[in-house]
Design a protein around this nucleic acid. Structure first.
Lengths: 206, 206
DNA sequence: CCGCCAATGTAGGCGGCGCCAACAATGCTG
DNA sequence: CAGCATTGTTGGCGCCGCCTACATTGGCGG
């Protein structure tokens, strides 16, 4: 057999998988999305990938380490999505806020279980530094947005934690409500418009 | 309410526990608070209560049923706390909102893991009717608050889901941020003031 | 070029888990 | 006070995460 190219994905039961670590993460995210976090088991993951039940331990020291790695990819993708949302939307604070909020809620919808995992892990005091940094990077995007709004006179003055925190709370809360299915579908669509307008009123200059 | 009260709490290793169901719930909430949701195991619960590992199944058909029952008590207590917060605070919307928000966040702080459980369970489509009703009862308190504010002319007009939803999102989001420890302690104290003021601006009449 | 070694995967076992079935003690009720 | 539903016990099944010992592989320095 020609094992020169793309031997990574042949199902030939080679002794070495090729990129088991990445395969585990991908498969774990699929299972997380389809069957929920409690259904995630290292042994089942290993079975799905045609590998022995102890193989994953070569790449993740325990189950939590895999979940941490999964959350890390989530933060990175979220940061990318939020960053992209700011491109080509102009300078007006209202537009920029609108774009970012919709991007965040969109990500939350598309990655509900993953987002849940991301938050539940950050809560843990033993979270890794990389995780903390990734979370810092994306929250910086919100901070910067508010800061720019202040500089333009479109957002009330004041320290960031006083001005930005309520906006962030509403954003986070709405995304969580939408994601956990607490909003009837028809409320959900227009609800976001109302939340954004609410944010603008609440953060407008005095 | 008759006699048997005396026997309920003797540790005499009687064959029948007396009120194993309530004891399981109480103990489960303690371990939930102290060691987190993943550490909750029916067998350990049974051991703690000095009972065999299969005894809990006589009262809860499976682990999820126990978690559901636990969440139900949580919703009932939350409703009671929010209701009590409205007593003796006068009629002004700002005062009533302030009291309810602080009561909610206080409950969230005191019962962080339980609240988490409550939300994660409601998400599940198989949640029981009793659970749905309990959740309905407390969200009605928020709805009524907003409705009264509208009647007094202190809250902008409009359908409830358009006016109340953003307020609720901010409340829920802030409580979650506070509970998961995402807020530095010094931000936390005054942060709530800022969020309440933000809510009032956002929901003030046009 | 090749032998050695670190990296990666396998095989098996340990204790704990949730759940189930069969059996035992209890106490309510007719 | 006898019978029976309720409540608790014992044991077992198949999972799980994690550990240790062993097997295979590929890359690197002599």
């Amino acid at each position: 057999m020609t094992d020169t190219l793309t031997l990574m994905h042949t199902r030939n039961r080679r002794y070495h998988h090729g990129d088991l670590r990445a395969a585990l993460l991908t498969r774990a995210e699929d299972t997380l999305r389809e069957k929920g976090p409690t259904a995630l088991s290292l042994r089942e993951l290993a079975r799905d990938l045609g590998v022995s039940h102890a193989a994953p331990s070569r790449h993740f020291k325990d189950k939590q380490a895999l979940l941490d790695a999964l959350a890390l990819t989530g933060f990175e993708r979220l940061t990318a999505v939020l960053g992209a949302s700011q491109e080509g939307v102009g300078e007006a604070f209202a537009k920029r806020l609108d774009a970012m909020v919709r991007a965040y809620v969109g990500f939350a919808r598309d990655n509900a279980e993953l987002l849940d995992l991301m938050y539940s892990i950050k809560h843990d005091p033993g979270a890794s530094d990389a995780l903390r940094e990734a979370e810092q990077r994306w929250s910086d995007l919100v901070v910067r947005l508010i800061g720019e709004g202040q500089a333009q006179g479109e957002v009330r003055q004041g320290p960031m934690e006083r001005v930005g925190l309520p906006v962030f709370a509403a954003l986070h809360g709405y995304a969580d409500l939408a994601v956990t299915g607490m909003l009837p579908p028809e409320v959900d669509e227009h609800g976001l418009d109302d939340v954004i307008a609410f944010m603008l009123r609440g953060s407008a200059p005095a």
